[in-house]
Every structure is written in structure tokens, then in C-alpha cells.
Design a protein around this nucleic acid. Structure first.
Lengths: 107, 107
DNA sequence: TACGTCTATGGCAATATTACCATGAGTTCA
DNA sequence: TGAACTCATGGTAATATTGCCATAGACGTA
């Protein structure tokens, strides 16, 4: 097995890091079906508008979402369409963890 | 579309966060094929042994790896086997980003 | 032009992450 | 028992992340 250069893992980690916040995951879930403006996402997340804007900047910088300006509004939309596999993997981890915790309790 | 509770996204984010560090990704790549002891992983990562130990604790706490003790040695191994989909997704993001950057340069 | 709306950014404090050093706990072996 | 080895855990400093406030920039409309 040939070892990948450290930059390879840094690039991967950057994407994972962008996915590593509950508010951003909530945003991505909302964007899965349709594009939304910052105002809608702000109401959805329930945080300050500037906070949501910075979360969106993180997602944009990671290349996960894309932006479309229309007058005063700014619409964000999913740029990639492969997160299902990621979620499936994450859920399997969570499910396994729950199972292990139950087993540890002797249930 | 029914909204998932915030705890749902926090649980997802916890897993993503555990994956969001180059050294941990390097470790996971090494563990993909075989279990390894902390000493081997320490040499692989090239950081202090305590640093690697803490990285492994993060992965273990997230439920991504598992531990087996054998005398003085402690062997870590992959506990889940669905990261291929995750990597595939991440790589597609990176590939798309590169393509966009090239397009932005007019190449 | 002036105003209201929508979004992005700088500043700042609180918190979290990370890496190293030192050390402790546990095991093997002489 | 004592030395050597492997690994985990405090402690600490440097750095990064996060959230809110204030504010600036951009656009549409009167």
C-alpha cells in the first residue's frame, strides 16, 4: 500500500471539518431538496444572521455549496450530490455505538 | 420534509469532527487493511506518542475504531466498514473544487 | 438621492482543539 | 523486586473555532 502525501489528508480533513458542526449539517439537510436564501436559513438555524453567514462561508469555501445572487437575495444550493453515502456511513457508526452501549449495559 | 431534532445533527457532527484531522485520517487509512499498535501508528504519524494516543482516543470515543490489548501492546482496528462511501464523497468534492478553480483561471 | 432590506465582514470574548512534556499505570522479563 | 517497555493521562501554551454585536456594502424602491 503506497502512502498518500500529507496534503492528501489535509484536503480530506478540510472537507470533513466543514461538515463537523450541527448548524451546518442542519443547513445542508435543508439545502438537500432546494436552494434557500440566507434569511430563510437564518430563521431555520435560529442563530444570528452573521453567524449563519459565516457558516455558509465555511461550506462555500469547502466547495460543498454554491451561491447564486438575485438582486438583494443570496441563494445557496448544494454543489455536490454524494452526501448520502457519507450520512449512511455516519448513521451506521451511530447505530453501532448505540448497540455497543446497550450491550455494555447488558440489555 | 420533517425536521430532525438538533441532537440528531449533533451526533452526526461528532462523527464528522472525529474525521476532521489529517493525522486521524492517516491513521484510519493505515488501519483500513490491518490492526496496528500505538507504537507503529506513532512512527507512522511522526508525532509524540501522547499526541497519537489522544488522536486514537478521539477515534475510539467516536466509535470509529476499537481496541484490543495484548500484553504490553494495544492494537487498534477499524470498527466500521463504510468509510469508502465517505471518502468517495470527499474526493468528489475535492475533484469538483479543482475543476472549478481551473475554470476560474480560464484553463 | 434617501431609505429599507439582505448579506458579509471586522472585532472581540468564550470555548475547543492541538501538541508537547512529564508522569503514571500496567505488563513482561530477568 | 526492579528495570525496560508500551500506552494513557494531566498540565500547559499556542492556535482555531464559534457566536454575537456593530457595521459596511450592495441592491431595490420611492
Amino acid at each position: 500500500m503506497k502512502r498518500k502525501p500529507i496534503q492528501h489528508y489535509e484536503a480530506r480533513a478540510a472537507v470533513a471539518k466543514a461538515l463537523a458542526h450541527p448548524s451546518r449539517l442542519l443547513i445542508l439537510d435543508a439545502l438537500a431538496t432546494k436552494e434557500m436564501c440566507v434569511c430563510d436559513l437564518t430563521e431555520l438555524v435560529g442563530a444570528d444572521q452573521s453567524t449563519v453567514s459565516k457558516h455558509l462561508a465555511v461550506l462555500k469555501h469547502a466547495g460543498i455549496v454554491d451561491v447564486r445572487r438575485d438582486g438583494v437575495m443570496t441563494y445557496y444550493r448544494m454543489k455536490i450530490h454524494c452526501l448520502e453515502g457519507f450520512w449512511k456511513c455516519v448513521e451506521s457508526v451511530l447505530k453501532q455505538n448505540l448497540k455497543d452501549q446497550s450491550a455494555a449495559l447488558g440489555v
